[in-house]
Write a protein that binds this DNA or RNA. Structure first.
Lengths: 192, 192
DNA sequence: TCAGACCTTGAGTGATCGCTCAAGTTGGCC
DNA sequence: GGCCAACTTGAGCGATCACTCAAGGTCTGA
């Protein structure tokens, strides 16, 4: 049951990620999950709740991968670079889109969607705090100077990643966006 | 007639900009423009065509403002910084959202929407070519070294602006995003 | 003044939206 | 085998979707 529910949630996540909230219909979700409408509503409550659960699942999965890469990295900044180069949707071939789901969701929900927008902001904030913690570790480890501002660095990294997500949807050749991703990873590693 | 049509198009642009394509209904457009459904279809053809016209109008208006600021700037890079600080939706209080409409539209249209996605890409490319031309002027004027890569600089500026657009929708205090905008403008002006 | 071309109107089209619920099915327990 | 609780099913709810079109109104030129 829980296994089925998780599998259904993964399907829903994929659909919402690629099509967005408004363009994904319950019919779409029925087809993708193999569930009937009654079961969907019994299991998840509503389309909006299922969307929120998808967002949470996405953040959780991405975070797990990040923690895993950080744990086996030789340094905090190296771990962060590994995350960008191997786990982030930008460089993860398994992702349905080379775009962070949270970034896409932020831009779809206007400033008016109330609870959904709040939930997204909450997850973005948590995410950025994790970046901030990594930069703090880098300062402690002597990788970054004491004068560095971890909060500001975390902000800039969030924005840079979002910028690349946008750029990845352009019709450009893959080499261009790949170069931009490695540039960003190099900047994080302070290779320049 | 054309005046009315332009006014209606402006209203449609505002709606599509704030709500996105999928979440804007014909009823919404009727209310905003004061037109009846028959007139809307007589004037614009379809919802998708009206959306494309809105995108074009947006790009045209933004471009006009950009050209105007560039013309009265003391140098190419100064003009570009003025554009960021005064015309771009990020810093333009008249904009319904602090987010470039083209960026939002790129992220809403998946990679599957066919003609709409192509049209957006076309406009983004044109926009980036204009950035590129400015950087070329800056090289000619001696503002940038001959070794600079205008194409790469234009790409990075597009991505940086998109990243800030994402960031502007977060719940953060305005001072934070303002600082990020001035930082970007300073970087363009090569103040660091 | 009136015929004809053009525009506006809004009720109405079939399709699809998110969602419900009574009926049917299943599985565990005594 | 008999019973109840829990789950599954899908027809169908009212609302709304993008869109159409015949009827009514307006304007022009002769």
């Amino acid at each position: 049951m829980n296994h089925n529910k998780d599998a259904a949630l993964d399907q829903a996540l994929n659909l919402f990620w690629t099509k967005g909230f408004a363009s994904t219909s319950i019919k779409d979700l029925e087809r993708a999950t193999g569930m009937h409408p009654g079961s969907i509503y019994a299991a998840f409550g509503s389309k909006a709740k299922l969307y929120c659960l998808s967002l949470e699942r996405y953040a959780l999965q991405l975070n797990d991968k990040r923690a895993q890469l950080m744990a086996s990295a030789t340094s905090p900044l190296q771990g962060l670079a590994d995350f960008i180069l191997r786990a982030h949707p930008l460089s993860n071939a398994d992702a349905p889109l080379p775009v962070c789901f949270l970034v896409k969701a932020t831009l779809e929900s206007g400033l008016d969607d109330g609870s959904i927008h709040d939930k997204i902001n909450e997850m973005l904030t948590r995410n950025e705090e994790l970046f901030e913690a990594v930069f703090e570790q880098a300062i402690s480890a002597g990788e970054l100077s004491q004068a560095s501002n971890p909060k500001k660095l975390a902000r800039q990294l969030s924005a840079d990643l979002a910028g690349l997500c946008f750029y990845a949807l352009r019709g450009d050749e893959p080499t261009v966006i790949n170069e931009m991703i490695t540039d960003l990873a190099d900047r994080v590693r302070q290779r320049r």
